[in-house]
Each structure stands twice: as C-alpha cells, then as structure tokens.
Design a protein around this nucleic acid. Structure first.
Lengths: 158, 158
DNA sequence: AATAGGAATGTTATAGCATAACATGAAATC
DNA sequence: GATTTCATGTTATGCTATAACATTCCTATT
C-alpha cells in the first residue's frame, strides 16, 4: 500500500475505497444513499481533509443539498461507520483509507505544506496509551492521535 | 504528583502552577500582564477545559475585557509559552499542570462524565509516533494525543 | 396494493468558535 | 522625552456546528 504522500494511481485507490464502502454497507444493511455516497466520493478525490462547508459547496453545485445539516449528517454517518474520519486539528473530514475495527481509528499524519493527510496504524500507540491511562485508573474509549509536520515531498522542496 | 482525577489540595496545586508561570515569565522576559495572569488563574481553578467564551465571560464580569480577541489573545499567549494547552476535541483550553519542553505537549485524558482533564507524559508515545512517521518520510513537528474515556471516580459511580 | 412506522432529507433558525483589521494605550529602548 | 514595540480595545465578520420541526422516501407488514 502506497502512502498518501507518494504519487500513486489515485483513481484505483479511490475506487477500492468505494468498493469497500459498498461492501460494508451491504454487509451491515447500511443505506449508502446518493448524498452519502457522493460525499464519500468527494472526500476520496484527494488525500486532503475537507471542511463540512467545502463538502456542502460541492453538494450544492450538484443540487444535492444546500444547508449545513445535509453535509453534517452525511459526514456523521460516514464517520460513525468508519468510512471517514474527523481530523480534530483541522475541524475537517477525510475519507478512510484503510480497514480497521470500529472505533479503532488510526493515527494521522498531516502535512502542513500540502495538506495531505495520511493514516498510520495506531494499534500499538493506542495500546500503550491505554496501558498508561489504566495505571491512572482511566479507561480510554476513543483516542485521537494526530501529527502535524512535513511530508518527504514538501521537505525535499524546501 | 496526584492525578487530576484524585481529590487533592487543589489550591496548593494551582499556586504551584502560578509560581512556575511567574518564574518562567521572569526567566524568559515574558510579560505576564493582568489579563494573561487572570486567564491562567481562571483556567487553574479546576482541572477542566474552558472554552474561550467561558473565559471571556469571567473576564467581562471582572472588567478585564469584553470582546473575544481579548480572551483569545491571552489564551494564545499562554499556549505558546506552554502555560496552557488547547484540547482539540473540546475546542477548549486547560492550564498546564506539568513541566515540559516547548512543543512537547503531554497526552490528555478527558473524562466524558466529569469533564476533568489530566495530563500524561507522552514522550515515549511521541517518540514511537515520530519513528513510525519517519519510516514514511514524514517529520513530526507537533503531535496531538487525546484520550476520551472514563476516570476511576466516574467509573465507580456507575 | 394500501398503510403504518421508521429513516433520511429539506428547511429555518440560531448557537458556538475564531480571527482580520484597525485604533488606542502602555512599556521598554534609545 | 522620543521612538519603537508590544499589548489591549473595538468593530466587524467569517467559519463551524446543531436544534427543531416539516416533509419525503423506504421498508415491512397487512
């Protein structure tokens, strides 16, 4: 699997994600409605996080909804079902690029230069965090791990 | 050092933090002005994250500023100098409870029940993250590690 | 095929978070 | 004491997010 920072056949990458989403919906009886499907497609266009209002603009241009709740509801659906992630640092959303258990969100690498967002499996980091938290009597339910920095490409350019 | 979740002599805890802040300001030639000092005191009242507008209400009640930029500027100053932290998940701010290098923010444990926020030293987690990111050619500049869950006290109550 | 119940979407309105831009004032430096 | 720098005051606005209610669309059941 190529990282989001490397150049790759992106349409294959997006197609694969759409296929995973379609299969997941079928398996779980989720309704991947036109708005939801379209929002996921929009997020999949690039390895970048989009704000809800950016998504909404796109939807509006296509006649799929003009008000914020339309975008927020679709995004919420995608996030709840692991098809997209919310990037807290950016107040924005990105399509899920990997496969992982529910609630087991990966860590994110966010390039401050090109805004590309990549996922990193974070199982070990989450485990370490849970262990340490557990020592303080704290039960971790959801962990957010986000790194801001420079990707290789942008570092090379500078 | 007691965790924020345990009952403790909180005024001593807040005083110690204020003293650290005063010393840091002196050492670095920072200006801990009345507004900045007061904002830090307000954050130190409890181990909870406060939104900028909550801080602003307090300031306004005391005649220290009525407009959002007053609160945001003071908070920005505190965060930049490591005296407070921004909790991304909450869009809120909390006083720093520990001592750490610049930019080396700790991990946060956020109880979803009592809203208490505690810090955990995250040096090892950050290192692990940086190493893993480095394998993908990514240079981590700042890492956000936040865990949402239940503290021992609240878990016991349920 | 009618219909009842639930799920999704449409719509209005508003709440909450954050900053740009410019004016004024205070403090340190020269 | 003039200059420069930093902090604060103020106005205005932009971005992010959700509550609440109306309507439409599916689905399952009769």
């Amino acid at each position: 699997m190529k990282s989001a920072f490397e150049s790759h056949n992106h349409s294959a990458c997006a197609d694969a994600a759409m296929t995973r989403a379609t299969n997941l919906a079928a398996a779980r009886g989720l309704r991947l409605t036109p708005v939801r499907r379209r929002v996921l497609e929009i997020l999949l266009e690039r390895h970048r996080a989009l704000g809800a209002y950016e998504v909404l603009e796109r939807l509006a241009a296509e006649g799929l909804g003009k008000q914020p709740p339309v975008a927020y509801r679709a995004l919420e659906f995608l996030v709840e079902n692991g098809l997209a992630h919310r990037i807290q640092r950016l107040n924005a959303f990105t399509a899920c690029q990997s496969v992982h258990e529910d609630g087991q969100a990966p860590a994110f690498l966010i390039c401050r230069e090109c805004q590309t967002v990549d996922e990193l499996d974070a199982a070990d980091l989450r485990d370490a965090l849970s262990t340490r938290a557990g020592q303080a009597g704290f039960t971790v339910e959801r962990a957010t791990i986000e790194a801001l920095g420079l990707c290789a490409t942008c570092a090379g350019r500078a």
